[in-house]
């Protein structure tokens, strides 16, 4: 049941991605409306799929990395729908939805991993740890998309040869605001998520921090985001620099995910 629902949601996301990209090129409002509706529909079905999955498993559907990826996609769609409305930026979907589709499709294709968790992992802590970390990461998907859009628009403005993207992308100011908002949204979640993870590692394994590739890399990503926030607050970093760090931070997160999937460690499935 939940697999059918999940496939439906994925199909909607992939369709919405295609429409959003067509809208980026053609800029017809009808196409944007269709993309938006499809995204919303996909999100509702996705929500159902997650609930059904949770009921079937008798625990939150966050036990494995692959399950968690699906939740990241789910939350990223939610944040994006919100930001599109909040900032009136119709092309946001064209930059976030491809990532969501890639996340969703790879989550569907990867082996689901162990569904029975080791006893050490059965604790309320872990759900807090994973939920918060995933919410943080999905906000950083938005942060990354905003950063990429900023860098593209800035390049257009510097080059003084307005191309297609110049007309389609919103102002630098708007993009900076989206990027910053996503950063301030994601950072507390990620911080708390990592903190809970570390605390719980001490309870389960007796040490705060033993060698685990995913944990190490996620701390690296956290440091990048912390530096961006600090730079903003103290040195007034905005615009290009903030956008650049949004991309670097997301790169670190992608590495983290890759490490979790490929390298053995406590997070591996």
């Amino acid at each position: 049941m939940n697999l059918v629902l999940l496939d439906l949601a994925l199909l909607a996301y992939v369709g919405a991605t295609a429409l959003a990209l067509v809208h980026l090129i053609q800029r017809q409002d009808r196409i944007h409306r269709a993309a938006s509706l499809l995204t919303q529909g996909g999100w509702v079905v996705h929500t159902l799929a997650l609930v059904v999955r949770g009921v079937e498993l008798g625990r939150p559907p966050l036990g494995t990395l692959v399950e968690a990826m699906s939740v990241v996609a789910w939350a990223a769609v939610l944040f994006t729908l919100w930001a599109e409305r909040q900032y009136g930026v119709k092309v946001l979907g064209a930059f976030v939805l491809p990532l969501v589709s890639v996340l969703g499709v790879s989550a569907a294709w990867l082996p689901p991993g162990l569904t029975n968790l080791a006893p050490a992992l059965r604790s309320a802590w872990i759900w807090g740890h994973v939920t918060l970390a995933m919410l943080g990461i999905s906000a950083f998907v938005l942060n990354f998309a905003g950063g990429v859009m900023y860098l593209l628009q800035e390049r257009q403005l510097k080059a003084k040869r307005p191309g297609a993207l110049y007309y389609r992308l919103p102002s630098l100011e708007t993009l900076d605001r989206i990027t910053y908002r996503a950063l301030t949204l994601g950072f507390p979640f990620l911080t708390l998520g990592l903190f809970l993870g570390a605390l719980w590692a001490r309870t389960a394994w007796g040490s705060l921090f033993t060698f685990d590739p995913l944990a190490l890399l996620s701390v690296l990503a956290w440091l990048v985001y912390a530096a961006t926030l600090g730079g903003r607050a103290i040195a007034g970093w905005r615009g290009r620099r903030a956008a650049f760090f949004a991309v670097v931070g997301f790169g670190a997160l992608a590495l983290t995910l890759g490490a979790g999937l490929l390298l053995p460690g406590r997070h591996g499935s």
Binding site: R27, D29, Y167, S171, E173, T174
Partner: peptide
Amino acid sequence: TETELARHAVSVSYAAVELARKIFGS
């Protein structure tokens, strides 16, 4: 409303204003 036929400036001084809006938003 449905196309951007009249959206973009065709005079130098107004093009400058539009660029400013692309940088600063409002």
